Amino acid sequence: MANWQQATVLSNHFWTDNLFSLKVELPPQNFIAGQFVKLGLDINDKRIQRAYSLVNPPNTSYAEFYLTNVADGLLSPKLAALQPGDSVQVSSPATGFFTLEEVPDGECLWLLSTGTGIGPFLSILGTDAPWQRFKHIVLVHAARFSADLSYQALIESMQQQHPAQLRYIPVVSREAYEQGLNGRIPQLIQQNELQKAANHTIDKHSQVMMCGNPDMIKECKTLLESMGLTKNLRRQPGQITVEQYW
């Protein structure tokens, strides 16, 4: 059973009308980047809780979450309404196996995300491990509109710190977008457009982590398996590691 800690809201930043980042004050947490905790609020004498990945790297004095405000949701509208100084319950310890520790070595690490699924990848990239283990890292973030491509300043700072290693590819599906690619990740892989943009192939020397829309994950997994990659399991290491985000 999870333990609960009361955390104080530090900030609640809205990127768009529906996308927001909630930052809360917590003692440094010794979790593994890529893991998640639960956020909870007591509503009508009942604790409503949902699992959310941590965006921050381990051992910071805060916890950060990248969320979608679902209009008819039981919890997210309440989280979206939180202001600095308000309280929220956070479960402890963090858990989950969507971590780099579960991923075998490879030449190129592909991080494929949609929407708020980029959150755990930002946590992973905030640690030393990916930069030490992989020669090349490709971060792909797909969204419906360019306004939904959050955390641009953070990603740009990572590119500046690791210019020879990190390639960032934004993908937009519902409007023309000249700063990245247009379409959906599975089709862009199938057409070899994503690989061209990254200047890297996806093969058995790659490691692919995917987080976000279940349809994207399902389609990409099927496509990657047709290309000779296999699902990564502890008993049988492969090249495809997934997080079923909702």
Rank of each mutant, 00 (worst) to 15 (best):
E193C: 04
Q152G: 05
L154M: 08
A197M: 12
L194Y: 01
L194C: 10
S157R: 14
G183L: 01
N182R: 04
G180W: 00
I185P: 02
Q190C: 09
Q191K: 08
L149G: 01
L188A: 07
N192A: 13
Q165K: 06
A147L: 09
I169K: 05
N182W: 00
L181D: 01
N182Q: 04
S157V: 14
L166C: 12
R167V: 13
R184W: 12
V172D: 03
E178S: 07
E193I: 04
H162T: 11
K196N: 11
Q159H: 08
L149E: 00
A164N: 14
K196G: 06
A164Q: 15
I185D: 03
L166M: 15
A176R: 09
A197P: 05
Q187C: 04
P170M: 03
I185E: 01
Q165A: 11
I155F: 15
Y151Q: 07
E156I: 10
M158V: 15
D148G: 02
V171G: 03
E175V: 06
A153Y: 14
I155Q: 05
A164K: 06
Q190F: 15
N182D: 03
Y151C: 05
H162K: 03
G183Y: 00
E156M: 15
N192Y: 09
I155H: 15
R174S: 12
A147N: 15
P163T: 04
S157Y: 07
R184G: 05
I155V: 08
A147Q: 08
Q152T: 07
E193W: 08
L154E: 14
K196V: 13
V171N: 07
Y168N: 15
